[in-house]
Design a protein around this nucleic acid. Structure first.
Length: 276
DNA sequence: TGCCAGGCTTCAC
DNA sequence: GTGAAGCATGGC
């Protein structure tokens, strides 16, 4: 068990922020994360204090990078002018959200199947894929499953995949798994590409369009310049900025800002009338 | 019953 | 290049 105080870190908000689907609050203040082929249980001790069910070494080398704890999120917030009341409120509301450094392959499949699904549905499909096609992993009394490998998904029939409520996305997932399993798409080598090159590579995968590709860039490769535009983001940009978001102001961190807008919009902030 | 969800592809024009 | 239709499924 490793206990520590972490500023600007809120697991409840991260779990609900729509960037990860295998971090769950099991009971008040008790979290379970399945990621990187491991299970991590976390207990919230107080507002900023957490106890991680792992040793200090594992926390320092695996989980601190995963949760992006070395990044100063306060610096991003300073970029927002006080005159932008909407964004100021969004940042205050979502304080503690960080952009996790998740696995590129898992993000590819997760966001491929995310299209035209709501977050509970995405969560359900991801969990079904893991239970049926992932390797069992230990760590507690209940059995958990790692995210399935490309090889595992590539050898499943369309019927088996579709049974995870993938709908018309079944063939997208199948094709992506086959590309990765065959070595045609090497996501780990792709990590050395520049943002625009990586975006282009991802767009070559069937079913990956601009929104999904930007989600993979942001959540799977931690390219925090990437700015995924989904229905929620577009709705907020239309309402608050007349359809044009001042991207140039947030060069280098637009993805972080986007995540606060998304969380605020989904959490009810979209109903608030902007100050005039 | 109809609408919506972290959209993309295809096909007219 | 732009815009509309079609796509599966589950929750509300």
């Amino acid at each position: 068990m490793y206990e520590t105080e972490i500023p600007q870190f809120d697991l409840n908000k991260i779990a609900e922020s729509g960037q990860c689907f295998r971090l769950r609050e099991m009971s008040p203040g008790q979290f379970e994360l399945v990621a990187l082929g491991r299970v991590l249980r976390i207990s919230r001790q107080s507002e900023a204090r957490y106890a991680f069910a792992c040793g200090e070494e594992e926390f320092r080398t695996v989980w601190a990078p995963y949760f992006d704890l070395e990044t100063d999120y306060g610096a991003f917030c300073c970029r927002v002018p006080a005159s932008d009341g909407f964004l100021s409120r969004a940042l205050a509301f979502g304080g503690g959200i960080r952009i996790l450094r998740q696995d590129p392959w898992e993000m590819l499949i997760t966001f491929l199947l995310s299209q035209r699904k709501n977050i509970p549905s995405i969560r359900r499909s991801v969990e079904l894929l893991c239970e049926r096609f992932g390797e069992p992993i230990g760590g507690g009394t209940e059995l958990r499953f790692a995210f399935p490998t490309a090889e595992s998904l590539a050898r499943r029939s369309a019927e088996e995949l579709a049974a995870c409520s993938l709908g018309y996305r079944t063939e997208y997932v199948r094709a992506a798994a086959r590309m990765v399993a065959a070595g045609e798409l090497d996501l780990y080598r792709a990590a050395s590409l520049r943002d625009c090159e990586l975006l282009e590579l991802l767009l070559s995968v069937p079913g990956v369009g601009p929104k999904v590709a930007n989600c993979i860039l942001l959540f799977g490769f931690h390219r925090i310049s990437a700015f995924p535009r989904d229905v929620w983001i577009n709705r907020m940009i239309d309402r608050e900025y007349g359809g044009v978001f001042p991207m140039e102001r947030y060069e280098g961190c637009a993805g972080v800002i986007q995540q606060y807008i998304f969380y605020y919009a989904r959490s009810g902030g979209q109903k608030r009338i902007p100050e005039t």
